[in-house]
């Protein structure tokens, strides 16, 4: 496979993994546009082993999609020799550099903030009812932070592909 074909493959992978990942955030906003605190009754119905396995699978898919999307994006920049310039927000690489920093922050949010709390909310890790309800507020804020960050993320991905049109 030549370099151009591999770059195309990476870009395609980046889009698909990104849609799986951020699509989950958008789906959550559409299902629950406004915050309504959970109650014990809300959490009581999802304890069957089958439902737990479904939740685990779904969460795993989008969590690992974040790693695939981030890795494909970083590898694309590295292969082009653009990674140092993007990291330094240098000239025409500044827009995609901003996108990369936002994407990195979002992946860290998924793994370090959302996941540890979501495990308790979903019942994948043992926790008291009070603790699960407390964690559901944190997962809401964490998920919405990524939804909010996806707006500039997609803008800077698009801007970066158009030759850094923001830069004079």
């Amino acid at each position: 496979m030549d370099g151009f074909a591999f770059d195309l493959l990476l870009r395609w992978t980046h889009f698909i993994a990104g849609i799986i990942w951020v699509g989950h955030n958008y789906s959550s906003v559409i299902q629950r546009p406004s915050w309504r605190p959970l109650t014990g009754a809300d959490l009581g119905n999802d304890q069957s082993a089958r439902f737990q396995a479904l939740l685990n699978r779904e969460h795993g898919f989008f969590r690992w999609a974040s790693v695939v999307a981030w890795s494909a994006g970083t590898l694309m920049l590295w292969r082009r020799g653009s990674l140092p310039g993007a990291l330094a927000l240098d000239g025409a690489l500044a827009p995609i550099g901003v996108g990369m920093y936002i994407g990195t922050l979002m992946m860290a949010n998924v793994w370090l903030v959302l996941w540890p709390h979501q495990q308790k909310v979903l019942g994948l890790k043992p926790a008291t009812l009070e603790e699960r309800l407390r964690c559901s507020r944190i997962t809401h804020l964490s998920s919405r932070t990524n939804t909010m960050l996806s707006v500039p993320l997609l803008f800077f991905m698009a801007a970066g592909a158009h030759g850094g049109m923001l830069v004079r």
């Binding site: 915050w35 927000l89 901003v98 707006v151 500039p152 923001l166």
Partner: peptide, 30 residues
């Protein structure tokens, strides 16, 4: 008053504001 993230509109509005602020910064500094 609740958190801006507590509504879909608040979340999107914050995203748009951040996009504008970052785009202006890139235009000024990069």
């Amino acid at each position: 008053m609740g958190h801006p993230y507590d509504t879909a509109a608040g979340t999107v509005l914050l995203g748009l504001l951040l996009t504008g602020a970052l785009a202006a910064l890139v235009r000024l500094l990069a």
